[in-house]
Amino acid sequence: MRGIILGLIWLAGASAHADVYISIDAKGGYVLTNVHRPGRHYERVISEPIAKAGPANAQLITGRPYADLVATAARKHDVPQALLHALIKAESGYNPKARSAAGAVGLMQLMPGTAKEMGVEDALDPEDNVLGGARYIKRMLTLFDNDITLAVAAYNAGPDAVLRRGAVPPFAETRRYVPNVLREYRKLQGLAADSPL
């Protein structure tokens, strides 16, 4: 069992911060998470000291590109501004004209199907793109009971990949992406890097 747990911890990524727990799902598979779900037994496999929240890093947020646009989208869709900024930084580095080889475009790198589903008319328009991205991450947060780790994983890998596993999928890109977004989110929230979400 110890070898399996150590292997799962390695899969979770060396840059993971905060407490990590393991549980067994209905099919007997192992699930790593930083959030307790009702009705499951959890065993802590990574323990990080709990850091106290620092002062809000409003200056870091208001000094970012598109700060007003992000603030409006965050209010409209009831998502943290810091999370939107963390996603934008990871997705496009604040480049409104960014395009990926897979076809994602704009600040929040919306795929054409996602953009259409979110009511985005012009994915290269920063306002339209951020509003659509905020709507989409809100949908992911709702789908995953406000588990930010799973919502961010779903933003990158798609919700089906996360739903099938009940955890961050084992894709190399997603395993790098999730800790990077969460680290930036914590920083913008004024939290230490190892603070629980």
Rank of each mutant, 00 (worst) to 15 (best):
A115Y: 00
G106C: 03
D78Q: 15
K76P: 01
G166W: 05
L107S: 09
L84E: 02
A154C: 09
L124G: 01
N129T: 00
S195T: 15
N57R: 07
Y185I: 10
R175N: 05
G63Q: 01
T62E: 13
L87E: 07
A154N: 05
D128W: 03
G132C: 07
A193K: 10
S23V: 09
L131F: 15
V35L: 12
V79I: 01
L87H: 10
A12M: 11
N156V: 10
R44D: 06
P112F: 00
D147G: 04
L8C: 10
A123R: 13
P170S: 07
P170F: 10
G63F: 00
A151M: 04
V45F: 08
H85Y: 09
A123M: 03
D68Y: 10
R99E: 13
L150A: 11
L8H: 14
L191I: 04
R40G: 05
G28Q: 06
I9V: 15
M108G: 14
A90D: 02
V178K: 11
I88P: 05
L197M: 12
L163R: 15
H41M: 11
A98N: 09
T72Q: 14
L32K: 07
R44Q: 14
G39A: 08
I137K: 05
A134Y: 09
A18D: 14
V168E: 09
L110A: 03
A98D: 02
D160C: 03
A151D: 08
V120R: 02
Y66L: 06
G133D: 01
R44L: 13
G190V: 00
R135T: 01
K97S: 12
A82W: 03
G13C: 06
S100I: 08
G106M: 01
A115L: 01
E48Y: 11
F144I: 06
R2I: 11
Y155L: 07
I88S: 00
L83Y: 07
L150Q: 11
L32A: 10
F171C: 10
S195H: 13
M118A: 13
R175S: 02
A123P: 12
G190N: 07
A102W: 09
D25E: 02
E127G: 12
